[in-house]
């Protein structure tokens, strides 16, 4: 009985000892990386639901609703066709330029929209973060999922364009699946990277459009990849040709089109694509996890 009064009047064991004695954990403790991964896996249903909730919330108040998922890439391709195919007539020197261009635009657009929304994945959901407990990596991952779902519609449009433009269907078309999986891993890593950076450095959001613009010009989207070999040499060329988005675009072009000039041999491109996916995917995940405790602070 005497011991009870000691606990009650709170002069006995230090708070730390008391916490350990009754097995209390520190609120907001950083779990280990494997523990965090398991937790994230347990929240997979939440991630999925959050992603579909985001899609229906953004399209729910439009009249056409989900049709926009197909309409957006179609209009996108149409605009580029009018500007580059009809007005500027860039297609003279490149074989099947429209298919070449659309593959670039859609694949680049995938990473671009993930990075653009990812930079706000944490800072734009502070209310949710401060109210509910879930592994924060759910947010950038859901954003990647949303864009991946949009990408499925875009790919359907792209395949139609490629077919109409006169390319034959070959077994090589199946290669778009591993290429897209690698790009999705890369994108998820990039989303986690920029969402942690964006949660600390709010100025980053203003810079992202310019960074993406420069990246666009360095990814052989609007003009053939052979332009680089004509004008650049040495390390500059090496840097451009190691550009991850360029690698992913080239893989899709290689899969869908015949007689297309590539930046490197397909084997080299596949190795580069895998290395980029692994480095950015795992690196971005680990970097995001390190910051888990502080996201609520704002």
């Amino acid at each position: 009985m005497a011991q009870t009064t000691v606990v009650e009047s709170y002069t006995g064991p230090s708070p730390k000892e008391l916490a350990r004695k009754y097995g209390l954990g520190t609120a907001g403790r950083l779990p280990s990386l494997p523990e965090y991964t398991r937790l994230l896996w347990a929240y997979r249903h939440f991630i999925w639901e959050f992603a579909s909730a985001k899609v229906s919330a953004s399209l729910g108040n439009t009249r056409l609703g989900m049709i926009w998922q197909v309409l957006t890439p179609l209009i996108n391709a149409g605009v580029y066709y009018v500007i580059f195919g009809v007005l500027l007539n860039t297609s003279r020197d490149t074989h099947n330029f429209i298919a070449y261009l659309c593959a670039g635009v859609f694949i680049f657009g995938y990473t671009q929209s993930v990075v653009q929304t990812g930079v706000q994945a944490v800072s734009g959901n502070l209310g949710l973060i401060r109210a509910l407990h879930f592994p924060r990596a759910s947010l950038p991952i859901s954003i990647t999922l949303v864009e991946a779902r949009n990408m499925i519609a875009s790919m359907a449009v792209l395949l139609a364009i490629v077919l109409i433009s006169g390319e034959p269907i070959t077994w090589q078309w199946l290669l778009i699946f591993p290429a897209l999986v690698l790009q999705t891993i890369f994108n998820a890593g990039a989303a986690m990277l920029v969402s942690r950076l964006g949660s600390k450095l709010h100025d980053l959001r203003q810079l992202i459009p310019f960074i993406m613009r420069v990246w666009l010009y360095g990814s052989a989207v609007l003009y053939p990849v052979t332009r680089y070999t004509e004008h650049l040499h040495g390390w500059k060329l090496a840097v451009i040709e190691a550009n991850p988005i360029l690698v992913y675009i080239e893989l899709i072009r290689h899969a869908l089109m015949e007689n297309v000039e590539l930046a490197g041999t397909p084997t080299l491109l596949w190795i580069e694509a895998s290395v980029w996916a692994l480095v950015v995917g795992i690196g971005g995940y680990a970097y995001f996890w390190r910051g888990e405790k502080g996201y609520g602070r704002g």
């Binding site: 916490a19 009754y22 954990g25 520190t26 609120a27 907001g28 109210a131 407990h133 502080g294 609520g296």
Partner: peptide, 24 residues
């Protein structure tokens, strides 16, 4: 309350301990 729920970090030097996962 948010700190007890582990949603806001406590500055170093102090701590909040809780059993299980408190819900806000």
């Amino acid at each position: 309350l948010r700190a007890i729920a582990g949603l806001l970090p406590v500055e170093s030097g102090g701590a909040i301990y809780a059993s299980g996962q408190p819900s806000l």
